[in-house]
Amino acid sequence: MTSTRSRAGSAAPADDRPGLEPLAPRVPWREFLYLGVVGVFVAMLVNFVVTNDRLNLPVFAEYLFDPLVLDGLQTTLVLTVAGMTGGTLLGLVLTAMRLSSSPTLRSVAFTAIYVSRTIPLLVQLLFWFFLASVLPEISFGIPFGPEFVTLETNQVINQLGAAIIALSLFEAGYMAEIMRSGVLAVDRGQVEAATAMGMTPWKVFRRVVLPQAARISIPPTMNQVISILKYSSVVILIGLADLMFAVQAIYSRNFQQIPLLLVATFWYGLATIVLTLVQSQLEKRLSTGLPKAARVRMQKLEETPVG
């Protein structure tokens, strides 16, 4: 008689009753197939990169820390941070108006969100950059009355200013909707319980709604940050020296387009990795009170692929 001992339960005596036969070992043939196909593609890519002299990897290394590139990276990061900050603050105001009990404020917010999401980023950017042609001077004063301060538009809104305004206004509509969905996802029962305790609406918002809405809003907000990081490169059209501007300026002189595009990709990629790490830290920090089961489930979902 051959051994019918099961793989796992070698301590337990073999059971000969029907239906309780030891498990046959499972060979993941499908997994081997996938690995094989992926392996061939990776090998082809590596071969292409290593054996292709025209790719000019030394050029990549030479320009990776070029001062022009690093300055451009800095501008890109400034645009991302400023645009997101402006967009988030404006979005918060729009959300509050959108959820207020005043029909006037609600319609203003609705229209503003519609406009913000309708006008392409590129159009907004050029609009603010060329604002001086329709509005040469900006004045502060009483509407239709006396003016106290008058400034030249071109002095107030330079390239960087136009870019930050455009990015902020472009983001505001998206951020408002992200935050509104976060607020709406908070359990109404908890809002009522806090109200019944005698909290003012503002207290209810700060103590109950905001902490929970913030957690819900993190993943979509991070999506916005990562996309603004890259889409901010449209500013090259108004001559603002960001990361893309820097690599283009360099390859227009030395014609090494691909190595320099790889330089830009490297920095965008690094920034995205950092942001992803920040996101998972934030999510962990704000997950207080989520049932452990839910947290474990979320981790499993992140770790295990579908299939």
Binding site: A194, A196, G198, T200, V208, G289
Partner: peptide, 25 residues
């Protein structure tokens, strides 16, 4: 809403679905 909040302090309510704040112990 401020005055109403102040007046609500004289009552407390227990809800069918508990309505505890889930992010607090």
């Amino acid at each position: 809403s401020r005055q109403a909040a102040r007046q609500r302090r004289s009552t407390a309510m227990v809800f069918q679905r508990f309505n505890l704040l889930t992010h607090r112990t």
